[in-house]
Computed example of a mutant assay.
Amino acid sequence: MWFSAKLCFFLVFIASNFGAFVRSDGGKATDCFQCLWDGSGSSNCADNPDKVISCSTGYCYTNVNAKGILGRGCVGKDDGFVTSNENCESRKGKCILCSDQVKCNNHKLKELKCYEATYTISDPIIMTNTHSKVCAWALEDLGCYHLEKNGKIEKGCMSNLDEQTRAQYQADNDVEICTRENCNSMVVKQLKCSQCSNEKDVNCADPTALQNTADCSQVSSSCLVGIDKNGATHRTCGTTEQQAKDKFEKYEMCHGTTCNDHIFPEHRLKCLQCQGGSDCELKTPESKQNLKPKVCEIYTDKEKCYTYYENGGKVYRGCMTDQTDSRKSCEKNDSNCQKCDESGCNDKSGAKKVKVSLLLGVTLATAVIFGLLR
């Protein structure tokens, strides 16, 4: 009699609590945290939810809706926030399902700052603290983005975008996405500029001699080539127009990787440049093939090429702005120096000039001797 009463009581208990142990789809029911928070005031909902409800569907959720309201609860058609699993799964990064344990929906909000700005490549903006904005709440590291298309730049938080736009950006090769705070600081996605200066490099003016590049993507959207007051050539990342005017007598800025690797100014003089080697005499077809005009290292619009014939027979060629001993000798010994002002014009053989000089010397010496004998 006692056993029968006890068994009956147990069956009644099971029947009355069946919904708490069995999900509506036949699985196990669970408990979920339940709360709502719009971000105003103080609330345990974000970091330490405490209200618990029984969930017959067995699926708990954490969700941030389009209005930025945080919600936790049990998925179901009677829930005013998330009515189905599909509804949550379609909102990646903004809604998370769980069913692995009791009160599993205690997911933490991801807080992030990203730079927000819109500008054109031709009128860039360098990111500062004023451009750093707090992103809308998310439940995953959705990150910051940098969109670069058709000369326009757009930066912002991925969590601020609607689901459709966010999906488009994630699949777009023109969009750079990163997940660290303010990681979208680049002015442009990728930009390398030729980098050199006559103050440090052998001949920054000559594009064929360029070797180094600089990553300018964090500081500029353009490359620059400029001539300073001393005629030296500089190649580097672009600056503002005012900074360029303050530093250079002539300059040019351009957009595109290593776009500053050309001769500047375009029509500056080229001269044959050599210092006494066998090729410098230009006596053979091979030497003429080996020795080609090169851009003069220092720029001036009054530049000239020279050929200097040393009395010992050696030949020197270069630019009149060169800081070489042969150029200095050329200025001091005009009779042994030929000058010209067209690109590649100092390409005449040196033998004839030397012979003429020797012949003049012999003639003068003969005249002097003849005068003395008289």
Results as ranks from 00 to 15, higher is better:
residue 2 W to C: 08
residue 3 F to W: 00
residue 6 K to R: 12
residue 7 L to M: 10
residue 12 V to F: 05
residue 19 G to D: 08
residue 19 G to T: 12
residue 19 G to Q: 14
residue 21 F to R: 13
residue 21 F to K: 14
residue 22 V to N: 12
residue 25 D to H: 13
residue 29 A to K: 13
residue 36 L to Y: 11
residue 44 N to E: 00
residue 48 N to C: 03
residue 49 P to Y: 01
residue 50 D to M: 04
residue 50 D to Q: 09
residue 55 C to G: 05
residue 59 Y to W: 01
residue 66 A to K: 13
residue 71 G to Q: 09
residue 72 R to L: 03
residue 74 C to F: 00
residue 79 D to Q: 05
residue 79 D to V: 03
residue 80 G to R: 06
residue 85 N to H: 00
residue 86 E to G: 14
residue 86 E to V: 07
residue 87 N to G: 10
residue 87 N to P: 05
residue 89 E to G: 11
residue 91 R to P: 15
residue 94 K to I: 08
residue 94 K to T: 13
residue 95 C to H: 06
residue 95 C to S: 13
residue 100 D to E: 06
residue 108 K to N: 11
residue 114 C to T: 06
residue 116 E to V: 12
residue 116 E to D: 08
residue 117 A to T: 07
residue 118 T to W: 01
residue 120 T to Q: 14
residue 122 S to T: 15
residue 122 S to V: 11
residue 126 I to W: 06
residue 129 N to H: 07
residue 131 H to G: 08
residue 131 H to A: 12
residue 133 K to C: 05
residue 135 C to R: 11
residue 135 C to M: 04
residue 141 D to H: 15
residue 148 E to F: 00
residue 149 K to M: 00
residue 152 K to Y: 00
residue 153 I to H: 06
residue 154 E to C: 04
residue 154 E to S: 14
residue 155 K to Y: 00
residue 156 G to V: 01
residue 159 S to T: 13
residue 159 S to R: 09
residue 161 L to M: 09
residue 161 L to S: 07
residue 163 E to K: 14
residue 167 A to H: 12
residue 170 Q to E: 07
residue 170 Q to C: 08
residue 174 D to E: 14
residue 175 V to R: 10
residue 176 E to Y: 10
residue 177 I to R: 10
residue 179 T to Y: 01
residue 179 T to E: 09
residue 184 N to H: 09
residue 184 N to W: 07
residue 186 M to Y: 09
residue 188 V to D: 04
residue 195 Q to S: 14
residue 200 K to W: 03
residue 203 N to I: 01
residue 205 A to V: 01
residue 206 D to H: 03
residue 207 P to A: 01
residue 208 T to I: 08
residue 209 A to F: 01
residue 212 N to G: 05
residue 213 T to H: 05
residue 215 D to F: 03
residue 216 C to Y: 03
residue 217 S to F: 02
residue 220 S to C: 09
residue 222 S to R: 11
residue 228 D to W: 07
residue 228 D to P: 08
residue 229 K to R: 11
residue 229 K to A: 12
residue 231 G to D: 02
residue 233 T to N: 04
residue 237 C to G: 06
residue 237 C to M: 02
residue 237 C to Q: 02
residue 238 G to Q: 07
residue 243 Q to L: 03
residue 249 E to S: 13
residue 249 E to F: 07
residue 260 N to K: 15
residue 262 H to P: 08
residue 265 P to M: 01
residue 266 E to S: 14
residue 275 Q to I: 02
residue 277 G to S: 12
residue 280 C to F: 00
residue 281 E to A: 13
residue 284 T to V: 11
residue 285 P to S: 12
residue 286 E to P: 06
residue 289 Q to F: 10
residue 290 N to D: 11
residue 290 N to Q: 15
residue 293 P to E: 06
residue 294 K to T: 15
residue 295 V to T: 15
residue 296 C to P: 11
residue 305 C to R: 06
residue 306 Y to M: 06
residue 306 Y to P: 14
residue 308 Y to L: 09
residue 310 E to Q: 11
residue 315 V to S: 12
residue 318 G to S: 04
residue 321 T to M: 02
residue 321 T to W: 01
residue 323 Q to V: 08
residue 332 K to F: 01
residue 332 K to P: 15
residue 337 C to G: 13
residue 339 K to F: 03
residue 344 G to H: 10
residue 349 S to N: 11
residue 350 G to I: 07
residue 353 K to G: 15
residue 353 K to Y: 06
residue 355 K to F: 04
residue 359 L to V: 11
residue 360 L to H: 09
residue 361 G to V: 00
residue 364 L to Q: 00
residue 370 F to N: 03
residue 374 R to E: 04
